[in-house]
């Protein structure tokens, strides 16, 4: 029962990932790609947390935390860049 719920959640997150990937590829503007990228990272963090639960390894959560930190910085830097160059 619980395993089923976890795999259902993973499937839903995977479907969300694919939908956002479409927006990332379709664009059309750089800003659309950046917000799609941001959402992709957030979904990935959910995925990493799910992987941590399935594998039973708390160390994966540190990966998720660092990933969150880097994606935040990445989006800020790209937005700064777009602000001057679009």
């Amino acid at each position: 029962m619980v395993d089923l719920l976890i795999y259902l959640a993973a499937a839903l997150a995977g479907a969300a990932f694919l939908l956002v990937l479409y927006r990332f590829l379709a664009g059309p503007k750089p800003a659309d790609r950046v917000i799609a990228f941001d959402v992709l990272t957030i979904i990935s963090i959910t995925g990493i947390a799910l992987a941590a639960k399935i594998e039973g390894r708390i160390i994966y959560l540190d990966v998720a935390l660092v990933y969150a930190l880097l994606s935040f910085l990445g989006v800020i830097v790209i937005a700064r860049y777009l602000e001057r160059n679009l």
Binding site: L5, A9, V20, Y22, R23, D32, L50
Partner: peptide
Amino acid sequence: ILGGLVLVSGTVFLLLGALGLNRMPDIFNR
């Protein structure tokens, strides 16, 4: 069981967000 249900409800919101990202007409709404 409770955690599993909360987990699934969370991913449902992720899916709705992904849907919104594709349906909304301009960058601000996205």
